[in-house]
């Protein structure tokens, strides 16, 4: 997964293995954080697992898939690819 954020204050370029971000542990942590911050949100582990699996499946078929590419007129860039 490649994440690029460029703005006046931020210059971020990260390349991470997708499996490091999208795994059971990160899903569990994410759910716990969401539930602690917003108890009204009712997301189950099953939902999150389904979401992660769909991303993983898609990544297998479309490597380096460009998910988001935003470039603003003042030179800010946000780029996320799988």
């Amino acid at each position: 997964m490649k994440v690029v954020i460029k703005s006046e204050k931020t210059n971020l370029f990260i390349i991470l293995p997708t499996s490091l971000i999208l795994n059971r542990l990160s899903a569990t942590i994410a759910i716990k954080i969401i539930k602690s911050k917003q108890p009204s949100i009712d997301i189950s582990g099953y939902d999150f697992k389904k979401f992660i699996n769909s991303i993983k499946n898609y990544k297998r078929q479309h490597k380096r898939w460009e998910v988001v590419n935003i470039s603003s007129s003042n030179g800010e860039i946000v780029f996320v690819s799988l």
């Binding site: 997301i43 988001v68 603003s72 007129s73």
Partner: peptide, 20 residues
């Protein structure tokens, strides 16, 4: 203004995201 946004999402993912 010159802003450009490109978002490409698999429909499968959109479906799951909508359910959530």
């Amino acid at each position: 203004d010159g802003d450009k946004v490109r978002i490409n999402l698999p429909m499968e993912l959109v479906k799951v995201a909508l359910e959530i």
